[in-house]
Design a protein around this nucleic acid. Structure first.
Lengths: 328, 328
DNA sequence: CTGTTAGCGCGTTCAC
DNA sequence: GTGAACGCGCTAACAG
């Protein structure tokens, strides 16, 4: 591995000139430039970025924290982030937190220790105060999910409206006994539930607690909870869930009690993950503008980095889209 | 942001002593230690790792290159890698290449420029010679997929045997007209095809070219190609595919021509991704030991890093598992 | 056990 | 337009 010194010696110039050529800063004579470039070529020189990073105190790297890689939901979100990051000369790296607070904090240290220039959370589990504290010192943005009460920029959809419109569609289709599988742990789900209650109330449909099931996002839970729903004296005729996996679980459960999802019971999921169009029947769902969410979050982060102003927080709410397929 | 100097001053010791405390190296008197720790606490000091990395010429970071985040297949692979990496004090980062050569090379630069200590490829697209070249200079391991002919360590399953056994099961179940959806672009798929041909030949079943379909790994292709298969005069009675998405596509296609997958036509997929157990019918598939694949690959990489010996290459082949469900 | 000092490789004043 | 010299923050060798 050669250093800038070696190049300078070989080119017969000073290290300063080599540095100027590499960063094409200020003026360098044509003669020097070609000499330096030749030397770089010849030695196959690659600048050691550890030196540069230390000197400049920046890494041009951005870390995205993901809960897990299992869902596939974040694929397009990352794509959007990646495009913007590349355009600004940043490299993107991802790590999974498995929704463990200590893992999250471990990665946050990369920020403190200068190893990355900024962090995007997709599903923070850290507390509001702690997150706020971090974001006062470092560039941080939340994308998709966010921590309630944290004074930290975020980009997401309008979850209440999404829940409202999905259930509105079911009501318009003639359903009155509508169950919801939601997840009280997350603000996004709580808002979707709020939308559900709102539209029910607007249509004078009583809210029945036995139709509101608190879940996580998993396929397995979808199966179990649906079974419970159909053990009720008056089972629902439609189910709205806060994830596609839950919805698929619900449909699978319906099959097992000899009901046909789509015709016997309407189902609407959330996220429009790949599986939605693959299932039998295909799944109606609420699509998030994933690419845009990623793009916006990255724009926000990079502008924060560039301005150095960490106290200005922005919340963006993008539009969702209700996609109707065979299941409803 | 404070530096080690500030801590030293506050604690009334030299920077060397502070450094010793931080890295708990050699002996430090109890008195000094408490003074330093108090100062660190008080200033909320966090060492700037850019300095350390430059000095030590290592980053304790490992980069994993993924084709995309869409599949969910790599989730458990990453988990295995992560555990091993953590155990050895390394942090894991991932980036997606979208199977673009230039993206791949861009990330390989992180190796040249000292920003990561090692790289694991999961699905390299780079040429054999170029990859070999890199791996002579840097710690590189291939996990799951690998480049044919590249002299670079790799961890994967025995794909030929996997194909052989999946098709063997179909034959044992009485099938003779067995189609395969494979992907000639990848060595793993070519090996699975080889296994398919081998077991057919062993059972004196003629190999019919019209049953061998060259595909990618996508759901959509699975649909299209299956349609073609059932336009044949003698359509197959069983289908083996090199991915679960393809298999689901095949099943979806069967539904569309009013055939019931599982009872009318047997289907076996590959990878045992989440969707396999979710589909209706549940999908038989070949499971890869994903956690183990990740674990082994990381072990291999870290031992390469520690030894500094880049010319010793190892190929590990782990055992797969045939999982029979409703679809066959 | 501790402090002084010399770099790690680079970018960047400040003279010339 | 160019080079000498300094320092980013840290670790490690050496002397004491």
């Amino acid at each position: 591995m050669y250093t800038i010194q070696d190049v300078a010696k070989k080119a017969g110039v000073s290290v300063a000139t080599v540095s100027r050529v590499i960063n094409n800063s200020t003026k360098v004579s044509e003669k020097s430039r070609v000499k330096v470039e030749a030397a770089i070529q010849e030695l196959n020189y690659q600048p050691n970025l550890l030196g540069r990073n230390l000197r400049r105190s920046e890494t041009k790297k951005i870390l995205v924290l993901l809960p897990t890689l299992a869902s596939g939901f974040y694929s397009k979100v990352i794509k959007g982030m990646d495009h913007v990051a590349s355009d600004h000369g940043y490299k993107l790296m991802m790590s999974t937190t498995r929704m463990k607070k200590d893992k999250e904090e471990g990665y946050l240290e990369l920020l403190k220790t200068k190893l990355v220039d900024g962090v995007i959370f997709t599903r923070p589990v850290i507390g509001a105060d702690e997150l706020t504290q971090y974001s006062r010192q470092f560039p941080i943005v939340q994308c998709c999910e966010y921590v309630e009460g944290a004074k930290v920029s975020s980009v997401s959809i309008n979850d209440e409206l999404a829940g409202y419109e999905a259930v509105k569609y079911l009501i318009k289709s003639g359903h009155k006994r509508i169950a919801i599988l939601t997840c009280s742990a997350d603000i996004s789900s709580r808002l979707r539930l709020k939308g559900y209650k709102k539209i029910l109330t607007e249509n004078n449909i009583p809210i029945r607690e036995e139709y509101i099931k608190d879940t996580n996002y998993s396929f397995k839970t979808g199966i179990e909870v649906t079974k419970q729903l159909f053990d009720l004296e008056e089972p629902p005729t439609a189910i709205f869930t806060v994830s596609d996996s839950l919805a698929i679980g619900a449909m699978k459960s319906l099959y097992s009690i000899n009901k046909t999802p789509g015709s016997d019971v309407a189902v609407i999921g959330f996220d429009n993950t790949e599986i939605a169009a693959m299932y039998h029947p295909t799944l109606s769902t609420v699509a998030q503008p994933r690419y845009e969410l990623g793009r916006m979050a990255m724009e926000l982060l990079i502008s924060t980095i560039k301005s150095g102003e960490y106290n200005e927080i922005t919340h963006m709410r993008l539009n969702h889209e209700l996609i109707i397929r065979e299941s409803s």
